[in-house]
């Protein structure tokens, strides 16, 4: 689609929610660069990232292409709190019986655009994938999840799950999601769900009625909400660290 010298634009399907200004100013070599990772058969590799950026940041994009060998596992947990445009893209090809576990959180205000773009290719039978993305947005920020799942012919017994939920803390915030499923095998389980809403007001009042101030109530609710994304993280202290980082970003926002 893009060769190494042209820049993507928001007319490209995969960049439809991107920040047009960021793309126009980007360096083609950087934006078109893919990091690669090979997970040998039967082994596990991890990627944990907390990406935040200061007020003067210009943005950040990261593209990672992973190949997971037979029976291998790739686990990725990422928190994005920065801006003005931050995009994390992961493409995973799964061999027989391999697994991809993904947990992503976007958390931001202002005019930030934050997104996860994934493409999971179930290339052989019996591979599984599970993706959980949680977006918490305020101000006029946007949180996106574009998740594409491809199941090739003969990749029977594929189990691919995808779940996106967004909480918009303020009126001007938004979230977008568009799951894309391309399935060419017939014995396949493919669960996907998406929901975009506000914080549960009833729970907020219930907590207030017990003496919990609104900012603490909000923190507890957001914490419970984003914790879903780290539920299957096999390294507990990493999950905790990512959660703490995310909550710190929320606190800094002084909502």
């Amino acid at each position: 689609m893009n060769d190494l010298t042209t820049l993507p634009t928001t007319r490209d399907e995969d960049w439809r929610y991107a920040d047009g200004k960021y793309l126009a100013d980007a360096n083609p070599a950087t934006i078109n660069h893919w990091r690669t990772l090979e997970v040998p058969p039967g082994e596990t590799r991890f990627q944990y990232t907390e990406h935040s950026s200061g007020p003067l940041a210009k943005g950040w994009t990261d593209r990672l292409r992973v190949h997971v060998g037979r029976g291998g596992r790739f686990e990725s947990f990422i928190v994005i709190t920065g801006g003005p445009y931050e995009r994390c893209e992961i493409e995973v090809t799964l061999e027989e019986g391999a697994h991809f576990e993904f947990g992503g959180v976007t958390l931001g205000g202002g005019d930030k655009i934050q997104e996860f773009v994934t493409r999971v290719i179930h290339a052989k039978p019996g591979a599984t994938s599970n993706q959980v993305v949680r977006a918490v947005q305020w101000g006029r920020s946007t949180g996106n999840f574009l998740g594409r799942i491809e199941v090739v012919r003969d990749a029977q017994k594929t189990d691919a799950a995808q779940n996106f939920r967004a909480i918009l803390l303020e009126k001007g915030a938004s979230a977008n999601t568009k799951p894309e499923l391309e399935i060419f095998a017939d014995d396949v389980k493919c669960a996907h769900g998406a929901a975009i809403g506000a914080l549960d007001e009833k729970a907020g009042f219930y907590m207030a009625a017990r003496g919990i101030p609104p900012e603490v109530a909000r923190k507890l609710q957001v914490q419970a909400f984003i914790a879903d994304a780290f539920e299957n993280c096999t390294t507990e202290h990493v999950a905790e660290r990512l959660l703490e980082g995310a909550l710190a970003a929320l606190e800094e926002a002084h909502l």
Binding site: K202, Y206, M207, R210, G211, I212, Q223
Partner: peptide, 16 residues
């Protein structure tokens, strides 16, 4: 009474 998923009674009441 309201359900609050992901927040344990103990945590909730200690905060309160």
């Amino acid at each position: 009474p309201v359900e609050i998923p992901g927040v344990s009674n103990v945590q909730f009441l200690r905060e309160a």
